[in-house]
Computed example of a mutant assay.
Amino acid sequence: MFRRAVLAPLVGALLVLTSCQAITDDGVAPGRARLLGDMTAQLQRAAQRPYHAEYLLAEGTRGEISQQIGPARAVYAYPGGRLMVDSNGHTSCVTAVRPARCQIRPLPGPGPAALTGYSEVTRHGLITAPIVTELLQTAQLQSQAEVEAHDVTLAGQQATCLDVSGLTDADAGGFTVCVTAAGVLASFTGVVGGVDVDQALTRVSSSPPAAVFALPEGARVVDHRPKTPAP
């Protein structure tokens, strides 16, 4: 409801992509492909800068995404848990219990397994750039998908939005996503993997607090990474 209340008065002129557009050899409208490709590139650019973003989620809950560049690492905090990602692996923590319980796993290989940790975050109502990127790339490959673009302002940030519909054999049949000029995810609305995601940016800064990258105090940690053989 928060997102709809903010977006309604701010929606600009819609760029509606219709069947009147020229079609490439693979049946994809070039304007639609460009919009999807540009937003994907925007999200990827954000991976090169530090930031801390706070979100209002469905049912009034809160979430956060924090990213640091040196060393490269990111934290996704959602109600009852968090996922920490760095070059050493994925650390998922359940913070709804005391003490918190954390498990460290090696970085997944390429392919569908690479999104496993991020998909778990989505199941708790917080969507991440890797999942959004996957949905945008799926839309690029489906010529029947429809895309409309508009601009909004959220948390004082100008953002470009895409309304995507008509997807088949995908985790979401349709969704609306907004991304700031800096590449930070500004909002997302849609049903992804059966989860109703309604996420809107409330605050963003370029300086993530150092404390967010630490394990919860007193956490019980199980490390599932392969042990390095002794020399």
Rank of each mutant, 00 (worst) to 15 (best):
R62N: 13
G31M: 12
D171I: 06
P110M: 08
S92F: 11
T160K: 11
P208A: 10
S87R: 15
A200T: 15
G173P: 02
G193W: 02
Q42L: 15
T24R: 11
T24K: 09
C93N: 04
P108Q: 06
H52L: 08
Q103V: 14
G27V: 04
R105M: 14
L185Q: 02
P209I: 01
E146P: 08
A230W: 08
A77Y: 02
D151K: 09
C161E: 03
T61G: 05
D171G: 12
L201P: 00
V191H: 08
V152A: 09
Q68G: 14
Q140W: 02
A145T: 00
V197W: 01
I23Q: 13
G31K: 10
L36D: 00
D163E: 12
G166A: 09
K227H: 13
H52G: 10
A113D: 15
G89W: 01
T153G: 10
P216Q: 05
P9W: 01
Y78L: 04
S206C: 09
V222A: 14
G117E: 04
L56H: 07
S143F: 01
R49A: 15
T138Q: 12
V191E: 13
G173I: 05
P226E: 05
V179H: 00
I104F: 05
E59T: 10
R45E: 10
L43C: 07
A186C: 06
G190L: 02
G81Q: 02
R98T: 15
G173M: 06
E54A: 12
T18A: 12
I131H: 03
L185W: 01
G80R: 07
E64S: 10
L215D: 08
C93F: 02
V94N: 15
L136Y: 00
T128G: 06
P130A: 06
I104D: 03
P30I: 02
V221I: 11
A5T: 11
L201F: 02
E120A: 15
A72N: 13
V94W: 08
V204I: 14
L14S: 11
G81H: 00
